[in-house]
Amino acid sequence: MLDDRARMEAAKKEKVEQILAEFQLQEEDLKKVMRRMQKEMDRGLRLETHEEASVKMLPTYVRSTPEGSEVGDFLSLDLGGTNFRVMLVKVGEGEEGQWSVKTKHQMYSIPEDAMTGTAEMLFDYISECISDFLDKHQMKHKKLPLGFTFSFPVRHEDIDKGILLNWTKGFKASGAEGNNVVGLLRDAIKRRGDFEMDVVAMVNDTVATMISCYYEDHQCEVGMIVGTGCNACYMEEMQNVELVEGDEGRMCVNTEWGAFGDSGELDEFLLEYDRLVDESSANPGQQLYEKLIGGKYMGELVRLVLLRLVDENLLFHGEASEQLRTRGAFETRFVSQVESDTGDRKQIYNILSTLGLRPSTTDCDIVRRACESVSTRAAHMCSAGLAGVINRMRESRSEDVMRITVGVDGSVYKLHPSFKERFHASVRRLTPSCEITFIESEEGSGRGAALVSAVACKKACMLGQ
C-alpha cells in the first residue's frame, strides 16, 4: 500500500517536472537572447534605426563620474514606483581627507489618484512632500541643488532636461508624456511658492545606482535594477552614441532593455503563462523582457503555473481556492519566502493557508518547484541581457580580458534567497573573457542622484555659470 502511494507521488512529481521543464533555458538559448539583445542595442544607438529599435539606448548626458572633490548639501528625489523618497545628502571631506556622503531620508507613498490623475496632481503632491521634508529638517530658507531620480523612459536633451516617452509600472498621470519632466517639477514648486529649489540633474535609477557604486569602486561602469521592473545602464564610447554629437570619451546610456521583445525577438521563448500575464497587464505587448524578470510579474506567473497544475490534477487534489483564482493573489514576496523555507515546509504551508488552501507535504514541495522554475528562468533571462552589455563593452574597448564592476539594486536581487547566485553564475558562463565584480548599492537611487548633481554643480562652477 505504502509502495503504491510512494509510486503515485513519484509519478505525480515526474509529471510536474515535465510541465515545469518549459521554463528551462539551455545555454544556447541564452546565447541567442544575448546576441539578439546586442543587435537591438546597436539599432538603438544608431541614428537611422533608433526610432524602430525596441531597446532605445537613451543617452543620459552623464559623462563624468564623481571624483571626490564636490562638497555641499544636496536634496535628492526618487520616483520610480508607488513609494517616493526625499533625501538630504551631505557631501563633504571625511576623516583623513576621505570623501564622505551622509544621508537623511523619508519615504512617502503615492496615492492612487496622483498616479493615475493628471501630471499637475502628481507633481503638486511631490512638491508637497518636499515642503514637508524641508519643514522637518528646518531647511526651507536654503535654496538647495536638487537631483531627481526618475525611473521611467526619458529622452534627455541635457542633464536637466528630459522628455517622458511613456509611463510604465502602473503610472498613468495624463499630460506628462511628451513633456519635460524637470519643467513639470519646477512648475509645481513655483505653484507652491513656499520654498526654492535648483533642479540641476535628472537621472534614471540605473544611472543613480551606477554612480553610487562608483563611489565604492571606481571600476563600476554598469548599473542595473532588478526590482519591480528590470533595466540597466553602462558607459558607452561616445563615438557609438549617434544621437549625441561628439566622439570623445564616454557617456552613460540608459538601455531601457525592459522593452526588448516588443518587436518579436522573444516570441519563441514566451510561454502561455507569459501571454496571460501580458494580456492582463496595463501595457499589453510592451516591456516583454521586463515581464519575464521583474517583481511586478513574478508572483503572478507562479500563480498561473499553480492553476495549470491544479487543472492537471497534480496539486491540491485538483481544487483551487477562490483566493488562488484571484489575479495578483500570489505576491512576489511569497516566491522569495517559499524558496527561503528551511525544509520543514512550515513557511510554505503558512503562505498557502493564507490563500485558503490546506496543502499536503507533496503540495508544498511542488509549489516550491514552481517558484524555483519561474525565478530561475528570470535570473537566466536577466543574465543574457547583462552578458550582452558586458561583452559589447569588452569588444568596443578591444580588451582581451576586461575587469568590470556592476552596481545592482532592486528588491528581487536583494531579497530573493537564490536569485543573485543563479544570476551571477549564468552571467559568468556567458562572459568567459571578463572578470566581473557585483556590488549592491546602498540607498543607491538617492545618493547617486545627489552625486550626479554634485558633478553638475562642479561643472557649472568651472564653466562660470
Rank of each mutant, 00 (worst) to 15 (best):
D3W: 14
D3K: 08
R5D: 03
A6S: 05
R7C: 11
K12I: 11
E14Q: 11
E14V: 11
E14L: 10
I19C: 10
I19K: 10
I19H: 03
A21T: 11
E22G: 13
Q24T: 11
E27P: 15
L30Q: 07
L30S: 14
K32H: 06
V33I: 07
R35K: 12
Q38E: 13
K39N: 14
R43C: 12
R46N: 12
L47Y: 12
T49R: 12
T49N: 06
H50D: 05
A53E: 04
M57H: 02
M57C: 14
P59L: 03
V62G: 02
V62S: 04
S64G: 15
P66K: 12
G68P: 15
G68R: 15
V71G: 15
L75I: 14
S76E: 03
L77P: 00
G80W: 04
G80R: 04
T82C: 03
F84C: 01
R85Q: 03
V86E: 01
K90R: 14
K90F: 11
V91G: 05
V91R: 09
E93F: 07
E95S: 12
G97R: 13
G97W: 13
G97C: 12
G97S: 13
W99A: 15
S100Q: 13
V101A: 13
K102S: 10
K102W: 01
K104W: 13
K104V: 12
Q106F: 07
Y108W: 00
P111Q: 08
P111H: 07
E112S: 11
M115F: 06
T116R: 06
A119L: 02
A119P: 00
A119M: 12
M121Q: 07
F123S: 03
F123Q: 00
Y125S: 04
I126A: 04
S127E: 04
E128M: 14
E128T: 06
I130T: 00
F133H: 05
D135R: 12
Q138I: 09
M139Y: 10
K140S: 07
H141W: 14
H141Q: 11
K142S: 06
K142D: 07
L144M: 09
L146I: 00
L146C: 01
F150Y: 05
F152C: 03
F152A: 02
P153M: 01
R155S: 05
H156C: 03
D158W: 01
D160S: 06
W167P: 03
K169C: 01
A173N: 02
A173C: 05
G175W: 00
G178R: 00
N179L: 07
D187E: 05
D187L: 07
R192G: 03
F195H: 09
E196Q: 12
E196A: 10
M197G: 06
D198Q: 15
V199H: 00
V200E: 06
T209R: 04
C213M: 12
C213Q: 03
C213I: 10
Y214H: 15
Y215T: 15
E216M: 14
E221Q: 15
G223K: 02
V226I: 10
G227V: 07
A232S: 14
A232V: 08
Y234C: 08
E237V: 10
E237C: 01
M238G: 08
V241Y: 04
E245H: 06
G246W: 12
D247G: 10
D247Y: 14
R250L: 15
C252R: 01
T255Y: 01
T255R: 01
E256G: 05
E256A: 01
D262G: 10
S263I: 08
S263E: 10
E265D: 10
L271A: 09
E272Y: 08
E272P: 05
Y273M: 05
Y273L: 07
Y273W: 13
Y273F: 15
D274C: 02
R275L: 09
L276D: 14
E279G: 14
E279L: 15
S281G: 11
N283H: 13
P284F: 08
G285E: 09
G285K: 07
G285L: 14
Q287C: 15
E290F: 06
L292K: 10
G294P: 02
K296W: 04
K296Y: 03
M298F: 08
G299Y: 01
R303H: 03
L304Y: 15
L306P: 03
R308S: 13
R308I: 05
V310Y: 08
E312V: 13
E312R: 12
L314H: 13
E319S: 11
E319L: 14
E319C: 12
E319W: 12
A320N: 15
A320L: 14
Q323T: 12
R325I: 09
G328S: 14
G328Y: 13
A329C: 15
F330L: 15
F330Y: 09
R333F: 10
F334H: 03
S336A: 06
S340V: 12
T342A: 06
D344M: 08
R345A: 14
K346P: 13
N350V: 10
N350L: 13
I351T: 12
S353D: 10
S353V: 12
P359V: 09
T362E: 08
T362V: 12
D363G: 10
C364I: 15
V367A: 10
V367F: 11
R368I: 09
R369L: 07
S373R: 09
T376H: 11
R377Q: 02
A378L: 03
A378I: 04
A379T: 07
H380T: 13
M381H: 07
A387E: 03
G388R: 02
N391A: 08
E399S: 10
I404T: 10
I404P: 03
T405C: 15
T405D: 15
V406S: 03
V408T: 11
V408W: 01
L415V: 07
L415M: 04
S418R: 13
E421W: 12
E421N: 15
R422W: 12
H424A: 15
A425I: 14
S426N: 09
V427K: 01
R428N: 11
R429E: 09
L430H: 08
S433Y: 15
S433K: 13
E435L: 11
E435F: 10
I436N: 03
G446D: 00
G446Q: 06
G448N: 00
A449F: 00
A450I: 02
L451W: 01
V455G: 15
C457V: 08
C457P: 15
C457T: 10
C457N: 11
K458G: 15
M462Q: 11
L463G: 12
G464L: 11
G464I: 11
